[in-house]
Simulated assay, not measured.
Amino acid sequence: MRARTPFTVFRVVALTVVVLTLIAPLVWMVAASLKTNVDIYDPGKALAFTPTLENYTKVLQQANYVDFIVNSLWIAFASTVLSLLIGVPAAYSMSRFAMRRSALVVLMARVIPAVSLLVPWYYVFSNLKMVGGFSVLILSHMFVALPLIVYIMMGYFDGLPLELEESALVDGLTPIGAFRRITLPLSTPGIATAGILSFIFSWNNFMFALVLSGADTKTLPVAIFDFVGYASIDWGGLMAASTVVTVPIMVIALFAQKYVVSGLTAGATKG
């Protein structure tokens, strides 16, 4: 017990430092969103201040942020659903039929910096008169979401016993029926993981929406820029808008963490 005591103390101290490092910016952001701009610049009111909801009122009523929230939800939902509809069957095919070259192409698409594609995308989509619409944002988000979903689901399908599908074929099911009635229900944690990560990426994405969105399709991360002016920054409104962007993702991650952990570790012990 004496030998283990120093390690226990070190572990507690290390965990405390890591947790405080991660939480401190979030706490400061939420606290700043409840202050006026004068209080934010006053070091004496870092902890003792009178809370106000003025910044949230400005964000939700005066800045039309409800429309931006709807835009972000629609783009994230549509890109995630479409990516799952395409990516899950593709990952199953690559896993069961050993399509290693296709898997290599997916992996290459996964590691390509997305910023390198923005200029060609803008050129192509502008010639097609698609820039500023929802379709171009959904397609651009799918380019990153699809490789992520295929990468996660391939590992998950690799970890599922092939004997289950063979038994279903013996019982009279077709290969598609075995996939739909046996493999797909068993892969729910992996699908949940891929869907959650894809939704989070789309919700937080700033770069694609900044270049490809229009006035009517602006998303929340881009709308935050409205509080950054040429000569000054509305820190209260900026922190309130950032809180509106961050809180939904934190709630989703909190309630879906068990699916994310189980999905990301699937296939790790295969063989």
Rank of each mutant, 00 (worst) to 15 (best):
K35R: 05
K35C: 03
T36Q: 09
T36C: 07
T36V: 03
N37G: 03
N37T: 00
V38D: 11
D39C: 00
I40M: 00
D42N: 15
P43W: 09
P43E: 07
G44H: 06
G44D: 12
K45F: 06
F49H: 07
F49T: 03
T52D: 04
T52H: 08
T52K: 00
L53S: 05
E54D: 13
N55C: 07
T57P: 02
T57M: 11
K58L: 07
K58Y: 08
K58T: 09
V59W: 09
Q61Y: 11
Q62T: 15
A63V: 05
N64E: 14
N64M: 02
D67T: 14
D67W: 01
D67C: 01
F68W: 10
F68A: 01
F68R: 10
I69C: 12
A76G: 08
F77E: 04
F77A: 11
A78T: 12
S79D: 02
S79P: 01
S79Y: 02
T80H: 02
T80S: 04
V81Y: 03
V81N: 00
S83Y: 01
L84S: 10
L85H: 06
L85Y: 02
L85N: 08
I86S: 12
I86T: 12
I86G: 09
I86W: 12
I86C: 09
G87C: 01
V88P: 06
A90H: 00
A91F: 09
S93M: 12
S95G: 00
S95K: 06
S95N: 04
R96K: 12
R96E: 07
F97W: 12
F97K: 12
A98Q: 13
A98L: 13
M99P: 03
R100Y: 11
R101M: 12
R101E: 10
R101V: 14
S102W: 13
V105E: 03
V105S: 02
M108D: 13
M108K: 05
A109Q: 12
R110N: 13
R110K: 13
V111K: 06
V111H: 07
P113A: 04
V115L: 13
L117P: 03
V119H: 06
P120A: 06
W121S: 10
Y122L: 14
Y123I: 15
F125I: 03
S126N: 13
N127M: 08
N127H: 06
N127Y: 05
K129T: 10
M130R: 03
M130P: 01
G132P: 00
G133E: 04
G133H: 03
F134E: 11
F134I: 01
S135L: 14
